[in-house]
Amino acid sequence: MSPRGVATPDVNELLFAAAERVVVRDGPGALTSRAVTTEAGCSKGLLHTHFAGMDAFVAALCLDRFARSAARARALPPLAGTGTVAGHLATVTDALFGSGGPAVSGLALTRPGAAQRFRAAMEAGAPGFTAIQEAITAYLRAEQSLGRFPAATDPDTAALCLVGTAHHLLMTDWPGAPDPEPALARLIGLLLGDTAA
C-alpha cells in the first residue's frame, strides 16, 4: 500500500517507469531517489524500502529493461514463416529503443556501484545483448530453413551485426541525435538482401 492508501500492484515498475521519464526529460544527472518518487507520486521512502540504495535501483532498472527486450527476442523463433522477417526484426530492435531505452542503456555507466552490480548480474546469467543475439540467431536459422533468409548469409553474423548496431546507436544517443530507425531498417534490408519476406 502507498501512504495514500492506494494499492501499488507493481512497485518496481511504478518506480522504473518514473525513473525513465526523469532520465529522458532531465538527463541521468537528475536521477535521484527524490526525483523518482516525486515523479511516481509515491512516498519518498518507497524506493529505499524496495532497493538497497540508488546503485541497486539503477542496476535493477537496467536489468529489467534488458530482460524485457530479451523476452521479446525469445518470442521470435516460433514466428518463423509468419509475417515478414523485416517486421519481426524491427519489432525486436524497436523494443531496445522503446520507452527510455537510449537514456536507460548507459545509465549504469554513470554510477560505478550500479555498473558493478549490473556486471555481476550479467556474469551470473541475467539476460542482456548476448541473450538477444542468441534469440535472433535462432530465429534467422529458422527463417533460413524456410527460404525466407538468404542461404549465403550466416545467421550468427547477421544477429551480431543487428545487435551490435543497436548497441552502438543506444550508446551514442544524445538529445537531437538522428532517429535510429532508418539506420536499423537499412541494415535489416541489407541483411535480408533480395529475399526479404
Results as ranks from 00 to 15, higher is better:
T8W: 07
A75L: 01
G176H: 12
G53L: 01
L15I: 02
G189V: 01
L146W: 06
R74A: 04
P78S: 04
V22H: 14
R117G: 10
A142C: 13
L162C: 03
A40G: 09
G5V: 03
A196V: 10
G128I: 03
Q133D: 03
G100N: 04
S33T: 02
T157D: 11
A151N: 05
R148S: 09
A7N: 11
H88V: 03
V6M: 09
L187C: 09
Q144W: 00
A151E: 14
P178F: 00
L109Q: 11
L63I: 02
A73I: 10
E39G: 06
V58I: 13
Y139F: 11
G164Y: 11
S69G: 13
E13S: 01
A59H: 05
V36K: 02
A114L: 08
R111D: 05
I188T: 12
H50E: 13
G5F: 01
A135D: 07
T82S: 15
G27R: 09
L76Q: 10
P178M: 02
T157E: 12
S33Y: 01
P175E: 14
D179L: 10
D64L: 03
R111I: 04
R119K: 01
L170A: 04
V23S: 01
T130P: 12
L14G: 09
M1S: 14
Q144Y: 00
G83A: 06
G193I: 14
A59Y: 00
V36L: 09
E181N: 05
S69N: 07
V163G: 13
R4I: 03
F129Y: 13
A70D: 04
L140C: 00
W174L: 13
E39C: 05
L76A: 11
G27P: 09
L79M: 14
P3L: 09
H168V: 14
A158L: 08
L63G: 09
A158V: 07
R21P: 00
F51S: 07
G29E: 09
A103P: 11
A35R: 12
H50M: 06
A70K: 09
A7Y: 07
T153V: 10
S145A: 15
A18P: 15
F118K: 01
A103G: 13
V22D: 14
P180I: 05
W174T: 14
T172E: 11
A166S: 15
L140P: 07
G100V: 02
A17I: 09
M171I: 02
Y139D: 11
V11Y: 15
E143A: 06
L160K: 09
P127Q: 13
G83I: 01
A151T: 15
G189W: 06
D26G: 08
A103H: 07
G100F: 05
